[in-house]
Structures are given as structure tokens and as C-alpha cells.
Design a protein around this nucleic acid. Structure first.
Lengths: 232, 232
DNA sequence: GTCTATAAAGGGATAGAC
DNA sequence: GTCTATCCCTTTATAGAC
């Protein structure tokens, strides 16, 4: 994830091994004790390395968490695709897209909180919306693009939908982070309800009658640069 | 803002003066150099005090930024109320509520980014949604409650609206933080467009016909604990 | 209650030797 | 690639002046 997540692109297998060692150790500790309470010194020691060595592989503590999100992204795409194969309806595909994301992240809340922490600050390289994380975001949005499949949609909706679904997904993640219900039941329920809403909204928004209103809303969002621009 | 924003409730006027001195100096430096690059040592020195004195008044660096948000809150309420006095329509009141918030914060983006940074992490005392900031949030929502004025609204809408408007306001703030257009023109335009949308949405949502759908959506949000519960 | 001076623990990040 | 040493910072703590 993000610029400088790794300082070195390791050349040898041994080096790749060391990197993985630091990452895994770091994740274990982050999960156990949270982000703040875990020190790089501790990670390095537990991984059998010196402090400096850890910094050779990761430019900062955050970079370790960022690398974790790369993993989440890969996993999400993989699991979602798998689910898409058997999902018949649009609704089922949407449900799969959202639920698989939570599946991947379940158990890692403390870690994710650390990640989320830097998201709001545009100055920060780990910002959710900043230029440094563009590629990450693109991959994240792409899953929702795949979820649309070959659903018949007006052009403007098709081009806006992935970003809108991704935005909803950010909201769900935020909810997830605060959700202390057993097995994240509340998050699961919220996803189900949200997907129902999306399906309804899609039905209404794609009515020919609704085109002018829809265009007006989408134009506002485009002008605000909140959506990729549609060719007029 | 938040628990422990100030360690001491000052007793003497002189002491209040010192506190203000630290706060002001801190804000100047934060604005100039950002949050990370400013040290408490520097704040203390420039304010003509010892390091210990700074810590006597503020438990942490964040606490200084948090104190700034107290000021934003106070200013927002004051300016919004002033604008409400001359605002005739619902739309004008909404516009006032959103624009005055930006008015107060304009020029302080770097500072706000530092604040925002901790918002997403529920473990953090400065979280936007956590229990520690409950009172702050209540005050922040209250402005939007006042914006509703004596507008005629169904009970369920009236009780949900302030929180919904506040949520929109959080979105606007996020946009604001990323908005580098001159004079934040884009943010201003977005607010105008969003308020138009809200006014339309209100019109539609309060149609007697829409009651069942409205109830369904509000119930989902209530069950997700995203809204204060309405008496059935 | 307000503040100075000072020390020390602890951790992020970096420089430079090997 | 890896290590040690070091810097600088936050934060806590303490002793005492006024």
C-alpha cells in the first residue's frame, strides 16, 4: 500500500524472507496489543533482528500496517471473485462484495483502527483519498466494478456506481470498526439492509422518468470531483 | 473537547491568561508548521514558559488541538445563531449552518487535519464517534437541531434530521480538508448543491405517501444505532 | 495553585560502521 | 543487509520557589 510502504524491493529470497518475518511478527503484536503499544524495537527483537534492520525494510511503523492492507486487498479480490462465480443475482453479488471484505478483516480490528487513523489527513501518505494511495483505491473500487458484472445499466450509472458502492463500503468499514456486537452481527445486518436499499435505489434511479434528476445529482458529484468524469 | 483536554481548571485570571498563551502559541505554530513538526518544547519556549508549565495546562499535544475544536464549536454556534436570525427559509437556515462552520475553520486546515487524524480510531480519546467525545458531538449536532427551527416535520423526521444533517456535515468537512481550490470554492459549491438536495429530499420524504419507506429506512438506521431511538 | 528546573524512561527515526 | 550508537521527541516525575 501507498508510497514507500517498502523501502527496498528485495532482490534475494533470503531478504524476502526477512521482510515477511518482520511483517508477520508486527501483525501478531499489533493484533495483540494494538498499534500504539507495540514498538518497532519489540517487533525487531521478536523477529530476531535489530531495530535498524526493521527500518531497512519498513520506513515506519505505519508502513507495516500499510503492507497488511495490501494483503487485505488481494484477499478481498480473491474471495469476492470466488463468490461471484456462484452468485446469480445483482443483489447476491453485492452482498458477496461487502461481506467478503468483512470476512477478510474480521479479527484485525485493532490493526485496522491504526490504518484508519491516518486516513483523514490529506497530508499523510496513508490518506484514504490522497494521491499516494491512488493505486490502492483503484484496486479497491475495482472489486465493486466486478460486482456489477453485466448488469444492464445506463451509461452514467455504470460509470458512477463503482465509486458510489466503494464509498458505501468505506462507511461500512467505519461502522465495523466501532461494532462491538458478537461476531459483528450488527455490521452484517447493516450490510444486508444497505444492499436492500441499494437494490431498491438502483431500480428507482434507472427508471427513464428519473433520468433528469439522476443526471443532476451525478453532475454535482462530478463537478465536486467525487466521481470519475463521464463523457457528456 | 474530550476527556482531559485540560488537566487543571484554572482558578485565577492570571492562570487563565497563561493557558490562553500556550493555546494561542500552539495554534500559531501548528498552522505554520503542522502538527508533527511542532514540539511542545517549542510551544513552551515561544510562549515564555517552561516545558512543565505547558504540561500543567495540557496533558498532551493533542489536547491543545482539542482545545481548538472547543473554540470552533463555540464560534460555530455563535455565528450560526446570528445567521439564523435573518434567515427566513429552511434552505437559508441550512446554508447558514454549513457555511458558518467552514467560515470558522477556514485557514486552519493543517490543524484540522491533525484533529481528523485521530477521529477514525475508536480506541483513541479523540475519536469522532467514541464515548469520550459525546458531549462535543452533542453540541455539534445541536446546531443542526437549531437550524430546523420550527419547520413543520413528522416526528420521526424531526428526531432523525439533526443527526443526518450532522453526518452530512462530517462529509463536508472531509471534503473541505482535501479541497485546495482557491477560497474553497469547491466546498462552497458542494454545500450549496448538497443543501438543494436536502431540501428536495425533505420535500419528497415527508410526503404522506412516503411514510412507509421512510420508516423502513429510519428503522434500519435506528437498529444500527446510527440514530437516536424514536419512541415507537 | 502556579510555575521552574531538571532528570529520566521510553520509543520513533537516522547515520554510519561493518 | 544488518548492527550499534545516537538524536530528538513525548511524557512522567520530582523537588522546590513563590
Amino acid at each position: 500500500m501507498f508510497k514507500d510502504a517498502a523501502r527496498a524491493v528485495p532482490q534475494r529470497a533470503a531478504s524476502e524472507e526477512t521482510r515477511r518475518q518482520i511483517l508477520d511478527t508486527g501483525l501478531v503484536l499489533f493484533r495483540e496489543k494494538g498499534f500504539d503499544s507495540t514498538t518497532i524495537r519489540e517487533i525487531a527483537t521478536k523477529a530476531g533482528l535489530s531495530l535498524g534492520a526493521a527500518y531497512y525494510y519498513f520506513t515506519s511503523k505505519e508502513a507495516i500496517v500499510a503492507a497488511y492492507y495490501d494483503y487485505v486487498q488481494t484477499q478481498h479480490l480473491e474471495r469476492a471473485r470466488q463468490a461471484f462465480e456462484t452468485a446469480k443475482t445483482f443483489k447476491q453479488r453485492l452482498l458477496a462484495a461487502y461481506h467478503t471484505k468483512i470476512d477478510v478483516m474480521e479479527g484485525d480490528e485493532r490493526l485496522l483502527r491504526a490504518l484508519f487513523r491516518f486516513g483523514g489527513d490529506p497530508d499523510h501518505p496513508l490518506s484514504w483519498f490522497g494521491p499516494a494511495s491512488r493505486e490502492q483505491r483503484r484496486l479497491s473500487v475495482a472489486v465493486f466494478e466486478e460486482a456489477l458484472g453485466n448488469e444492464k445499466l445506463p451509461d452514467d450509472v455504470r460509470s458512477a456506481a463503482p465509486t458510489l458502492l466503494w464509498t458505501l463500503h468505506m462507511g461500512v468499514l467505519l461502522y465495523f470498526l466501532y461494532d462491538s456486537s458478537p461476531s459483528h452481527r450488527r455490521t452484517r445486518k447493516l450490510i444486508d439492509a444497505a444492499v436492500d436499499f441499494v437494490v431498491d435505489a438502483k431500480r428507482v434511479a434507472t427508471l427513464p422518468l428519473m433520468r433528469p434528476i439522476r443526471r443532476r445529482v451525478l453532475t454535482i458529484l462530478e463537478e465536486a470531483a467525487l466521481l470519475p468524469t463521464v463523457a457528456a
